[in-house]
Structure formats: C-alpha cells, structure tokens
Amino acid sequence: MQSNNPVFRRSEEFNRGGANPYGNQTYAGNGSAYPGYGSDPSQWGTGAPGAPTTPQTTGGPMTIDSVVQKTAITLGTVIVAAFATWVLTPDLTAPGVTSEDLGSLYAALAIGSLGAFALSLVNSFKRVVSPALVLAFAVLEGIALGAFSKVIEAQFATPDSGSLVVQAVIGTFAAFAGTLAAYKFFDIKVGQKFRTFVIGAVFGMIALSLMEVVLGFFGNALGFHGFGMMGLLFSVAGLVLGVFMLILDFDFVEQGVANRIPERESWRAAFAMTVSLVWIYTNLLRLLAIFQQD
C-alpha cells in the first residue's frame, strides 16, 4: 500500500509488503523475507555489477518500544532546547525591557521556525531517515517553541489564569493519550480517503500560513496568526487537524511493526509524532491566549 503521508512515503520499508494487522487489507509479500537475504548466509550477495541492489538492513525490526524510545529522545531534545531558549533570552515581564531584548527573542523565534521548517521538509522527503537530521530538527523546533511560548506567556498570562504554557503542555499530552485510547479501543481504521484529506489539509494550512506571513510584510494580513475571530477559527481547525495527524501516525507505526520494517525507521516515526505534537501544542497555546483576552 502506498502512503500519501510525505513523512512515510519516502520510506521504502513502510510501503513494503508484510503482515495483515487489520484483517481487511492485504499487503504484497505477505510477510516474506527481504529479497537477497535468505536464511543461509552463503546465499547472500550484492547482485550483478551495475544491477540495482536492495538496501541492507542491520539490527532487528521496529517495535513499539523502539518507537517510544526514539520519540522520547526527540521530544526530550525539543523540551531541552525550548527550556534553554526560555532561560537564556531576556525576561519580558521584568521592568526596563528594551527593544533589543525583544529583538533577540524574535530573532530566536524566526531562526528556529525557518530552520525547523526547512529540516521538516528534508526529513519528510528524505528516502533514508537520518537520526542526526531528526535531532537537528528537534533542536531548532525547541528554540522556536521556547521563544513563542515566552512571548505568549508574557503577553497573555495573568496571576489568575496561571501558566498558559503549562496548561498547553498538559493539554497536548492529554490529546495524545485520548487519541491513542480512541484509536485502540474504538479500533479506528484509516482509509485512503481519510489519508488524502488529512495530508491535503496539512499542506493547505501550511500554504495559508506562508501566505499570511507574506501578506504581513505588506500590512495586509488576514488574521490567521492573530488573536481575533479568524485566529480562533484557524487554531481550532489546526488543533483538530493535529489530532487527525496523530491518527495517521498511529496507523503507520502499527503497520510498520506488523510488517517488521527495520528498526532505524523508528526515527521516522518519532519525527512524525513530534511534528504532530508540536502542531497540537502551538494551536492549543494560541487558543488559550485567545480565550484569556477580555
């Protein structure tokens, strides 16, 4: 089965045949061994000169434990980078904050956002997953999140409201746990139409966000990134879409484990999961900020 998800589509292993975990789909190969790798080592070979070869795999197959481990490492990197950015940038609530202080924070936000966006494209379309690039993405994403969170917290949080950042973090992990529980207990099946809709919606929202940034340079922003009614609708749509992205992530991980794809693909799954969680967190934080306004 070919995936419409750009993160997994570039992986040959995710589209390779394997077991039938759902009972309603059949995958080519039906769990057979990879070509060129029989049980007898004497039969192994590199093929004829000039002929295409099958990429060799090392280590065991991907498991739920390996996905959890790599996801924890990736998310941990995001959190550490975000915390470091929060601590090392000026305190916006302190008296005497200058424009230079604000400039350094917004510079961190811009550099982190642009760098994370560029690496997200590279990781999404790279055929062979690179753990180093995944972690580099996590560092840049953490820098952007740390700066963004600090700006929102300083601008909208009050003593009565408590920390909006803490609420957004708790809400993000609650959304993750709730989506996972619904996926397992309700035995959600991911069909081709659903995949196409979610991926199309993701690219649509990215296109609208980029258009908003460009229009903002000319003073004609539509308010998608603002804190008015348009920003509210855009954030709600983004939050729902983030949950749908998690469902796609769970589906692909389940298929990958059933198909016994190489363990290195756990990094690709971790990257996709991190993107979904960051997507949920940013939209949830913006929603909390909007609701906090008078």
Rank of each mutant, 00 (worst) to 15 (best):
A270M: 02
L248I: 07
L133N: 14
F137Q: 10
F185H: 10
R195L: 01
G45R: 10
F173G: 00
G191A: 02
E12R: 12
V275T: 09
V7F: 08
Y183I: 05
V213F: 06
F8M: 05
S130A: 05
E153P: 00
K193S: 14
V80G: 06
K70M: 09
I111E: 04
S66R: 12
G59K: 02
R10P: 03
E254N: 13
P90Q: 12
A270W: 04
I64M: 15
L180P: 03
T179Y: 04
L102C: 00
S39K: 13
E254K: 15
I199S: 03
E212I: 11
D40N: 14
S235N: 13
Q255P: 00
P49G: 02
T71H: 01
Y183M: 07
D251E: 11
F8W: 08
V151Y: 11
F14S: 06
S163F: 04
G228K: 06
P131V: 01
G36D: 12
G219L: 10
K193V: 11
I199D: 04
V87Q: 04
D91E: 04
L210M: 04
I79R: 00
S163D: 00
G216S: 13
A207C: 07
V278F: 06
L140N: 03
F14I: 06
D249W: 04
G115E: 09
V240H: 01
W44V: 10
A157T: 05
E13D: 15
A138K: 01
G171Y: 08
R10G: 12
A138G: 10
F125P: 03
L164H: 08
A270G: 15
P21D: 07
G18L: 09
R268G: 14
F218P: 04
T179N: 12
Y281N: 07
E13S: 15
T71W: 05
T179D: 02
G36R: 11
S276P: 01
A33Q: 07
D91F: 00
F244Y: 02
Q293D: 08
G96V: 01
L75V: 14
S11H: 12
P95T: 00
N30P: 02
L241P: 01
N4I: 11
S3E: 09
P55M: 14
V214M: 10
